[in-house]
Amino acid sequence: MKKILFLIVILLTINHLSFSQSKNQRYADVSIAAGSGFSPALSYNYNWGLGKKGKFKIGTGIRFTYFAKGRTDLITAPASLTSGEKGPQVLFTENILSNFDTLKVSKIGAGYINIPIHLQYSFSQKFEVGFNIDAIGISFGSKQSGTFYASDSRSLNKSTQTAKPTTFNLLLVSDNDLGSLNSELYARYWVNDKIGIRAGLSFQFIEYTTDKVLTFENDRFRTKNLLPMIAISYKF
């Protein structure tokens, strides 16, 4: 009897959370973010509607992002150095400024292809708000030379170092993240059944790895950028 009741509860739960096929979304998206840098992005996305009405959606896809910026300060990246911690607690830990080194470069340009995670809520057929964040992928780009300013090394301070975009990208938590990642907070209005206009903010981690291991046994440096963003979506 207990097994039957347990099975009924499971079936009712699945039925409540089941995907609503009629509310699924499949669309392509072209965005441009600009401000402290310039960043176009192209993506293909699929969102699944949950429940009978399908107003809340989860999804994934693939996104190519390119980020370009002129003179840039790349700062020490690993959480173990920036906060002395690893794991979720880095969100609540103060930065250790004495561990921060800087690689100053004249420009950066990184392209990265990632698989994002989407969360979205539809207020109506026309208007919806959402959030997405890159989960895993790869980056590429040319090498850049810059001046390294070391907090704890006279021999390396003001030396010339070479770096290129970190190859592997992985979403963890805050400074625990690896590589280059894009996340967006947005609102979208569907002009018709096919075309939507999306606007919001893009927050991007861009990470470079130096050819040599430098102070504190570190070779990873990043810049964080918050950019206004606008996009056009095409629903299939």
Rank of each mutant, 00 (worst) to 15 (best):
L5D: 07
I8R: 06
V9L: 04
L11E: 05
N15P: 00
H16E: 07
S18R: 14
S18E: 14
S18M: 13
F19T: 00
K23G: 06
N24C: 08
Q25Y: 11
Q25M: 11
R26D: 07
Y27C: 02
V30E: 04
V30T: 08
I32R: 08
A33T: 09
G37E: 02
F38C: 02
S39G: 05
S43M: 10
S43T: 05
Y44A: 11
N45R: 15
N47D: 09
W48A: 12
G49F: 08
G49A: 06
L50S: 05
L50Y: 07
G51Q: 13
G54E: 10
K57A: 03
K57Q: 13
K57S: 06
I58D: 14
T60L: 07
G61V: 01
R63M: 08
F64D: 09
F67W: 01
A68M: 13
A68V: 02
K69G: 13
T72S: 12
D73S: 12
D73H: 08
L74P: 03
L74R: 10
T76C: 03
P78V: 01
P78I: 02
P78R: 14
A79G: 12
A79L: 02
S80W: 03
S80H: 08
L81P: 05
L81N: 11
P88N: 08
P88W: 09
Q89I: 11
L91M: 03
E94L: 04
N95C: 01
L97C: 00
D101I: 05
K104I: 05
V105S: 04
S106K: 10
I108N: 09
I108F: 09
G109H: 14
G109C: 06
Y112L: 00
P116H: 13
I117G: 15
H118G: 04
S122H: 15
S122G: 10
Q125P: 10
K126A: 14
K126Q: 15
V129M: 11
F131N: 00
N132V: 01
I136L: 08
I136D: 10
I136Y: 13
I138M: 06
S139P: 06
Q144F: 00
Y149H: 11
Y149P: 00
A150S: 14
S151M: 09
D152N: 15
S153V: 02
S155M: 14
L156T: 12
N157D: 15
T160Y: 05
T162I: 05
A163L: 04
P165K: 07
T166G: 05
T167E: 08
T167N: 05
L171G: 08
L178D: 09
S180L: 02
N182F: 06
S183R: 09
L185R: 11
Y186D: 02
A187M: 12
A187Y: 10
D193P: 00
K194I: 11
I195F: 09
R198A: 12
R198H: 11
G200Q: 05
L201Q: 09
S202M: 11
F203M: 06
Q204W: 02
I206A: 15
I206C: 14
Y208F: 04
T210L: 07
K212N: 13
T215Q: 07
E217A: 06
D219G: 04
D219R: 15
R220Q: 06
F221Y: 15
T223F: 03
P228W: 13
P228I: 10
M229F: 12
M229R: 11
I230G: 03
I232L: 14
F236K: 13
